[in-house]
């Protein structure tokens, strides 16, 4: 197992924010986490990366990485693992790059620090990495010269520079155009296929996750309300919240104009979801907080 979460609870003080998340992520596997904002997706990711915000702790359960319980790791060991075993990209790529350094030099720096490459070798490898995220000519460019999608790809290059086994993409495409989003998702899928990179893909959009994942977790208010293989969750959702997410797509997405290969999506299930919308009224917290 590359990454394994077993009944992870996350608390700050005496308040619990995440009430038990478990999943096994094998090499080359993809786990998706869906949920509205504030449902605990980012906290879960941060727990897996060992970078919970100050005051937050994994109050019970275990996170194990490559078979090792991360609770036993020292700060130093964590630092060594981050980047070379597990890595992440987030929603706002611009804030993770230094505006005064070229993109290429920042990728190369990671290689020098993490893999102890010489400067020359690091530069050559950085050029290769940027090529692999389809950014052939940006080594000498500065972050402000790149579009949002290009920045996110540059950040992915930085994140995979030290050859991690697990990459967490937390809302990595949320701020991007749909066409650019698909480009990033396709890139992640290619990387998984070519290098066996395991992925954790987080989004508030079920469809984004569904495109890529083997297993999906649906979170709400810190709890996993539904979990299972993508096809089960999509075609036979058990929880009303999942049905609501599917229904939102059915009535407002592109799906109803395209021929569906999954007949189970239509009909009874969705009618049910429409009728059950009423109890969820008032589920309007989030974005602004």
């Amino acid at each position: 197992m590359s990454l394994q979460l077993t009944d992870v609870h996350i608390s700050a003080g005496d308040r619990e924010f995440v009430h038990g998340v478990s999943f096994d992520l094998p090499a080359g596997g993809v786990v998706g986490i869906v949920g509205e904002s504030g449902s605990g997706k980012t906290l879960t990711c941060r727990a897996a990366l060992g970078i919970l915000p100050p005051g937050f702790t994994v109050s019970s359960g275990t996170v194990s990485l490559g078979g090792r319980d991360t609770a036993t790791l020292s700060t130093r060991e964590w630092t060594a693992l981050r980047g070379s075993t597990i890595s992440a990209v987030f929603q706002d790529p611009a804030s993770y790059l230094n505006p005064s350094l070229t993109v290429g030099s920042q990728v190369a720096e990671v290689l020098q620090v993490k893999l102890r490459l010489r400067r020359r070798a690091a530069r050559d490898r950085a050029v290769e990495l940027l090529d692999s995220v389809r950014l052939p000519d940006v080594y000498r460019r500065y972050p402000h010269e790149l579009s949002g999608g290009m920045l996110q790809r540059a950040l992915i290059a930085t994140a995979i520079a030290a050859g991690p086994r697990v990459l967490i993409a937390d809302e990595a495409t949320t701020a991007l155009d749909v066409t650019v989003q698909s480009e990033i998702l396709d890139l992640l899928a290619d990387l998984r296929d070519s290098t066996g990179l395991a992925l954790v893909v987080v989004s508030h959009d079920l469809a984004v996750v569904a495109q890529l994942c083997d297993e999906v977790l649906v979170m709400r208010d810190g709890a996993v309300v539904e979990q299972g293989p993508v096809s089960d969750v999509l075609y036979a959702p058990r929880h009303e919240y999942t049905r609501l997410l599917i229904d939102e797509h059915e009535s407002y997405g592109l799906d109803r104009f395209l021929s569906l290969d999954g007949a189970a999506l239509e009909g009874a299930v969705l009618e049910g979801a429409v009728r059950e919308r009423a109890p969820l009224e008032g589920a309007d917290h989030g974005a602004a907080r």
């Binding site: 698909s182 469809a207 997405g253």
Partner: peptide, 24 residues
């Protein structure tokens, strides 16, 4: 072609793995 890419990129619930090459 841009419209085709738009349609092909919109997140839909059915698995879109087969479309990756077309989008590329």
């Amino acid at each position: 072609p841009y419209t085709k890419l738009l349609v092909g990129s919109a997140p839909t619930l059915r698995s879109a793995a087969a479309d990756r090459a077309a989008r590329a």
